[in-house]
């Protein structure tokens, strides 16, 4: 098969949607935080926590959906920590974010070693299985790619719809957007900026954790160290690439996943002429390139990274 034909196979697009799914969850999570004015660099660690919490719930006998819920709650908890430090206390979002990532990651590894001291190879769970949607999944290529996925992937797409609807069609969404653009206007309406921002970070972090859980419960079926592998940072780039809009960010995530799936297949057909590391570098390099391309016309939330103090201008 040559490098071009790959693009027309259904299996390629099935992989693209699978690779995009965790990114979609986490990108939506980060997007919510940033639209409210908070950069959440805890994302990498929160995804790690979610990956472990979800997997471990199922490993200890829980239901798959219980695992998703536990992951979301664990993510929300770290989101609450991040929010408490950055919103009412107004501490540096950079430093706190890195701190939350370091804490979340190390606590996860500590807990993993504590509950599974003896294991050498990561134990497996019975993960989410693909669920073909009758009718739709029979459409060639596109239908197969979109409708033979696991339930969590469908949830990822549903999340995008939900986030878009809430952000642009509800009063809560308006308050979230305004908190990130013009917080004093929000306060003037009698709405607490602190409350809105904290809520956004908690909910966003829960989504990030579900993104992490997708990896251990749907894409793979076990937890291993360093499995997030920079995906969180890539999602931050995707939010910028998507100009802080859910729809555009979704397109970005799918484009990125397409590129990622494509490099894996290119790697297989290149026959080792090009070192495999070059292919593995591409997703990260592409993210940087995407940031450069959109940077000039990026319209980021005006109050992003600016702490808000009531009654201060």
């Amino acid at each position: 098969m040559d490098a071009f034909e790959i693009l027309f196979t259904a299996s390629f697009w099935v992989a693209v949607i699978r690779i995009a799914s965790p990114l979609i969850f986490a990108t939506m999570g980060e997007l919510i935080c940033e639209r409210a004015g908070v950069l959440n660099l805890g994302i990498e660690g929160i995804m790690t926590v979610g990956a472990f919490a979800g997997w471990f719930t199922v490993y200890s006998g829980g239901d798959l959906w219980a695992g998703v819920l536990v992951a979301a709650l664990a993510g929300a908890l770290f989101g609450l920590l991040h929010a408490t430090l950055t919103v009412p206390l107004g501490l540096s979002q950079h430093v706190v974010g890195i701190g939350v990532t370091l804490l979340a990651t190390s606590l996860t590894y500590f807990t993993y070693r504590l509950v599974l001291p003896e294991v050498t190879s990561p134990p497996k769970i019975e993960s989410f299985q693909p669920l073909a949607i009758p009718g739709l999944s029979n459409i060639p290529v596109l239908g197969e790619a979109l409708f033979t996925q696991t339930p969590l992937t469908y949830l990822a797409f549903l999340t995008v719809v939900l986030v878009t609807w809430v952000l642009y069609r509800t009063p809560v969404g308006l308050a979230v957007r305004a908190a990130g653009e013009n917080p004093s206007a929000v306060e003037a309406q009698g709405i607490s900026v602190t409350g809105i921002r904290m809520g956004a970070v908690v909910v966003g972090s829960a989504l990030m954790a579900v993104g992490g859980a997708f990896l251990t419960m749907s894409a793979f079926n076990s937890f291993f160290f360093q499995m997030i592998n920079g995906r969180g940072w890539i999602c931050i780039a995707l939010v910028v690439f998507g100009s802080w809009r859910p729809g555009k960010a979704l397109v970005g995530a799918i484009l990125f996943a397409a590129f990622d799936a494509y490099q894996i297949r290119l790697q297989q057909i290149s026959g080792g002429i090009v070192p495999y590391q070059v292919f593995l570098m591409m997703p990260y390099a592409l993210s940087i390139l995407a940031l450069i391309l959109v940077a000039r016309r990026a319209s980021y939330p005006k109050a992003l990274m600016i702490p808000y103090q009531k009654g201060e201008r």
Partner: peptide, 15 residues
Amino acid sequence: FGVDEVVTTLLLNFI
């Protein structure tokens, strides 16, 4: 270009 250095330096670690 106004590209946030947090993300670029983080991604460069992996590269």
